[in-house]
């Protein structure tokens, strides 16, 4: 038994428990936290597979950015516990169990059929292993910016388009809003200026008196 096996078992158990937590909890905030734990456990698994860069990005992007937005929205909207709409969902529950068992059986069958013992997990202190450098930032960056530069750029353009689209949808009535806000602001400014002038005159009069 290698030390990395202990790590693998620990992270795998954590991921599975947290994943069940996502499904079984009723309170959305607990589900979100369960998902964060799953993402962190997966990052740990990536680390044992020498995929350091992916592990870091997994935490930075998914756990650190996307899930923060999830939690943010859940807390801001103060989503209550999901009310039990049991009548409609009962049939889903009945279907879910055999489906889950079928999936599990499929995994085991595949493992039996392929019957490839997984390659030995490399030791953490072993620097001579070529797989150790494969997941590093340097090798991924080299691949991404030379061999796969076209797909990479195409993906980023796609994401940019999605962002612009989201902005466009969100700012549908922005022109009216802007006009309204500007009106309100100018009104307010005029009023405050008038009030200030009145105050100043008053104080002048007081001083004079």
């Amino acid at each position: 038994m290698e030390f990395t096996h202990v790590l693998f078992l620990a992270f795998a158990a954590l991921a599975v428990v947290a994943a069940f937590n996502i499904i079984l909890q009723r309170n959305p905030i607990y589900c979100a936290i369960g998902l964060i734990v799953v993402l962190c456990a997966l990052a740990g698994l990536f680390l044992t597979l020498h995929a350091q860069f992916i592990a870091a990005i997994q935490i930075i992007v998914y756990a650190g950015a996307i899930m923060v937005l999830f939690v943010f929205v859940i807390m801001l909207l103060n989503v209550r516990e999901e009310e039990s709409k049991t009548d409609r969902q009962k049939i889903l529950k009945v279907i879910a169990v055999p489906l889950f068992l079928a999936l599990l059986a499929e995994v085991f069958v595949v493992i039996r059929l392929v019957n490839n013992s997984p390659p030995a997990i490399a030791s953490a202190a072993d620097n001579t292993n070529p797989a150790a450098s494969l997941g590093s930032v340097e090798s991924i960056a080299t691949a991404m910016f030379t061999t796969y530069v076209l797909p990479f750029e195409a993906t980023s353009v796609l994401i940019l388009m999605a962002i612009v689209g989201a902005m466009l949808l969100a700012r549908k009535n922005s022109k009216d809003d802007f006009e309204r806000i500007e009106q309100a602001l100018t009104l307010e400014n005029d009023e405050t200026e008038q009030a200030m002038q009145a105050d100043a005159e008053k104080s002048k009069e007081e001083v004079a008196a």
Binding site: A55, A56, I60, A63, A65, V137
Partner: peptide, 25 residues
């Protein structure tokens, strides 16, 4: 030391925000 040292620091500091959000809520 590992070759994602800096990313590791940023990953963990970005996790710290959860505690604050959870505490507030």
């Amino acid at each position: 030391n590992f070759n994602i040292g800096l990313l590791y620091v940023f990953a963990l500091t970005s996790l710290g925000v959860y505690g604050i959000v959870i505490a507030g809520w």
